[in-house]
């Protein structure tokens, strides 16, 4: 405990664990709250079906539109007497699952293509450039609506669309980082030592850019959550009988005058979650990677 206050230069190489603990102690309050909220959300997502007191489609016409705080229904019931809390928990699960899937998918595709573009140049680079133009010309929600009109709305389509729309950002990032590493930096040096491109990317470039990629993933995770809830709100994402935060609000708005709680509970969850992710992402960016703007 004594060396905690000593200047960093005097500490003899603290272990990774003790450095992590020290870092945790210095967390700002907002980041602590945000992390706690996100942790809670992920626990809920994992245990939604265990935690939910009722089946999500269990209709109880005797207790329709029960206000929050009533015994047995903490968050009230909806127009069909379904328990709002149970629906909320399951919705958190599906919204987070979709957002996580889309984020991982687009990060993986984008990073691989970005590295390929850095190594092969030519065709890949033009493809990425074309994609930048395409995205600048078509807001995501418009494209998603159009595709849903043609192909039909479903969860796989939604995840695919969000991954399709997100990969370009990672590709550009990965390409830029790889190029600068190869141009005059350590990756070029290692290539010159005779390492295979695979070894250069896996052992040198990927570990060095992972901080930046994680920050980007975090920051775009909140956008993905918002995009999913927006589309589900418009009736395009998750379809009945499944439930997501966005479509709970979409259906809840019809009862805005009589039962605003149906819509307010998921609205609060979306807002707090995307806020927490943004806070965490900004903090991570400042800590890990000052180069991303």
């Amino acid at each position: 405990m004594t060396d905690m206050t000593a200047p960093p230069a005097a500490i003899t190489q603290p272990s990774r664990l003790s450095r992590a603990i020290a870092a945790l102690r210095r967390l700002p309050l907002a980041v602590e709250l945000a992390s706690a909220w996100l942790l809670a959300m992920f626990v809920i997502a994992a245990l939604a079906h265990v935690l939910a007191p009722y089946e999500i489609s269990e209709i109880d016409l005797m207790s329709r539109l029960v206000p929050p705080g009533s015994p047995g229904h903490w968050l009230g019931t909806d127009e069909l007497g379904r328990d709002v809390l149970s629906r909320l928990l399951v919705s958190i699960r599906s919204s987070l699952l979709i957002a996580a899937l889309a984020t991982i998918l687009s990060a993986t595709i984008g990073t691989v293509l970005g590295f390929l573009a850095a190594q092969r140049r030519g065709v890949f680079e033009h493809a990425i450039l074309m994609f930048v133009d395409f995205q600048a010309a078509l807001p995501f929600i418009i494209m998603a609506l159009a595709v849903s009109a043609f192909v039909g709305a479903s969860v796989p389509v939604l995840v695919g669309l969000m991954a399709f729309y997100g990969w370009e950002r990672y590709a550009r990032l990965a390409r830029g980082l790889a190029l600068s590493a190869m141009g005059k930096g350590y990756a070029g040096a290692v290539m010159q030592l005779g390492a295979s491109p695979m070894r250069v990317f896996m052992r040198h470039i990927l570990p060095n850019v992972s901080a930046t990629l994680v920050v980007t993933m975090t920051l775009s995770f909140s956008e993905v959550i918002l995009a999913e809830s927006g589309l589900s709100f418009l009736g395009l994402g998750v379809q009945l009988p499944d439930s997501s935060l966005g479509n709970m609000i979409g259906f809840g708005r019809d009862y805005l005058t009589t039962a605003p709680w149906i819509m307010l509970a998921p609205a609060a969850v979306i807002t707090l979650t995307s806020l927490s992710v943004s806070i965490l992402g900004d903090w991570l960016r400042d800590r890990l990677d000052p180069s991303v703007s």
Binding site: Y186, Q192, G194, S196, P207, N208
Partner: peptide, 23 residues
């Protein structure tokens, strides 16, 4: 063959900090 030949011929850079993996 080019890669295998690298063991026999080497390059020293102007900026050693850039040539070393920071991690």
């Amino acid at each position: 063959q080019w890669r295998e030949q690298r063991a026999e011929m080497q390059l020293i850079y102007q900026d050693p900090l850039a040539a070393l993996d920071p991690r």
